[in-house]
Nucleic acid binder design. Structure first.
Lengths: 214, 214, 214, 214
DNA sequence: AATGAATGAGTCTTCATTCAT
DNA sequence: AATGAATGAAGACTCATTCAT
């Protein structure tokens, strides 16, 4: 190795860089594996009851490895949450990429996403209401929430809102989030029923915010 | 003694009844002590991290006594929640007892209550989204939520809503609940700021639902 | 009351005595109620897992009352055991009251009793092997065991055993007891199967001790 | 490193294998440490009253470690029992390895073992009579009991028993086990006295089963 | 970088017993 | 004598995190 470096430093630099890239790629993909494993677990059970051991087993890595990628469980949970949020903003961008989506479409999309990803909602509620977060984590959380809001505001603007667009975005975001906390656990209803009902409420809220109602 | 019983059985019965009443009263008050102690603790820290030991110490009773009144911690938590909810419905009744309150007043009241009792909100979110509840507990939860909704609908009706009052009550309830999940933890803001902002959003939602906006 | 004593001491003594008798009778019957309640519970579940509360509930008396009759749970358990043992000796006496029973009959009876009263056997095993017993309790235990042995020896004698009757009684008693510890929990067998098998073994042991085998 | 792997994968494999062996060995030895610690404790007090904390302290490991090796206390207890049983079968094999042992020798050996290892006997009684066992545990228990029986039957056969060897093995096993339940706690007797008496009974039973008596 | 055994503080819950009424 | 609420020590078990290999 050292011999090579002396003989052909240039090529070696390249190699070195490639190796580092490779390492980084490997690192990223392993991180992804862990993330996905966690997400799959959350689909099955309340994320608050998922243990490191479970995640490590499900991901096929050791417990230690998880701590090589995240300083603690909370950060892993936060990462899952952040990824979901990023996914949402991405999707929102896609929806409105060509022609601006209607408020109704936006609301419908969001509620559908929440129905499909209850964990995201649980985490939002958990982090926003309860959890002790490191300053760093707090900042990340705030940023992504702001980002989400931005998209919503943009959408609102493109839909025709002129005044108070920011505060309206806040209110709309609130109203949508509230749907799930109120009805995610409706007694004796199937998932399908809940989906229908929450979408109905989303529609109503969209209408109300569009001035169509009451 | 025996003579007395024969001579005046009525009085004895009365005494017995009084004793039982007293016992019940004592029981109720001790239960209240435990409840209040828990509530006070919840004001200081996330209710999910409060232990039986803490509650027992704070209430000045033994651990065992807690379990004399509640089969497990979850039931105690649920009782705290249920009491808060009952308090809210009571207050809502009071507000509208003479002259029907405006939608805005209603919303303002609810958000103010949530600001003052974050634990109630945390618990609502906890029980609605996650927690394993016994069938009995689930039923209690559902009932109280329905009760809350009834009051909201009543208020809505008295405010002039004619059609779709039920679903509108749902939507309004959702919208209000969402405010807190979205802004209870606004970065770098004081409690006062948050209170102002959330009230502002409540007002906006009231307006929107009243057709004053957008 | 006092006046009566002076006027008619003789009659009063009688009354007093009667009252005491009555009290004693009442006391005895309540004790019996507790005892029977415990026994019924033991028929359903391992006596080691039966709690004072369960017994008190099942007997329809308060916990305190139980402690009025027994200084602690162990003594109650011991009393149940002692009563069973007394019942056995009584039955043995009955069996051989007219014509002496054969060894086989004796063994059959004992094993049948154990099959019907596993709790007795569990307790014998518990007290003989493990439990810390008060000196008083120990003495009671020893006495009843000796009594049991006496009956067995008597039976042996009446059956024709001349020499070594005492040690033979010991050995026989041991052999019978061992049947249950070895086969009370035979894998995948029904109660009926176990009963048949243990009776078969009892028969064999009776034969062996009678010199019929091997 | 990489060069080595390419040049000599075999050696590397070997190293890897050795490492795993070492780990397994270490694991085994630690398991043994826990086991022995438990056994030592059982010699001092009733195994039912031994706590995880005591065992962990005595073994010089943490509580968590215990649960790294056993899913729960019962399994640890069962393992102790199973090891004893395995030891007994091993010893029985040794005794009869060259020349078949006499029935008397066999019985003497077994009773001596029980005198030396009362815990084994307590556990047998506990598991056979009472304890809730997992299906897996139950199976292990049944197997080892059967194994024990096999040895006894083999011994019986080698001693000359031709007919009914299986059922006779059952009866003999029962008879021996019964000795301890009946006399392990003889009032006011020293260990030595008990040992003598129980050995005397074992001898008697051996005789009886050999047809020498009565 | 990956591993996973070890750690042990901390959790909820149980239950025999007491004692004021 | 009967009651049963109060007690609190004690128990089994969990699980995020560390760290030597």
């Amino acid at each position: 190795m050292q011999t090579n470096q002396i003989e052909n430093p240039g090529r070696n630099l390249l190699t070195k860089k490639r190796l580092e890239d490779l390492k980084q790629t490997e690192r990223d993909s392993r991180r992804k594996i862990i993330l996905d494993a966690a997400l799959e677990l959350f689909a099955v059970k309340d994320f608050r009851s998922v243990t490191v051991r479970e995640i490590s087993r499900h991901a096929g890595v050791s417990i230690g490895t998880i701590y090589n990628y995240y300083p603690n469980l909370t950060e892993l949970f936060l990462d899952v949450f952040l990824n979901c949020a990023a996914e949402i903003t991405q999707m929102l961008d896609n929806i409105s990429s060509k022609t601006p989506a209607s408020l109704e479409q936006l609301c419908e999309f969001y509620i559908t996403y929440l129905n499909d990803n209850m964990t995201f909602y649980q985490m939002m509620s958990h982090f926003m209401l309860g959890g002790e977060l490191s300053p760093d984590a707090t900042q990340k959380l705030d940023e992504i929430m702001k980002e989400l809001m931005n998209r919503l505001e943009t959408a609102l603007l493109s839909v025709g809102y002129k005044t108070n667009s920011r505060i309206t975005a806040h209110a709309l975001f609130s109203a949508l989030n509230g749907i799930m906390i109120s009805y995610a656990r409706y007694p004796g209803k199937t998932d399908k029923d809940i989906r229908r009902h929450t979408l109905r409420l989303a529609e109503m809220i969209a209408d109300v915010f569009s001035g169509k109602k009451p």
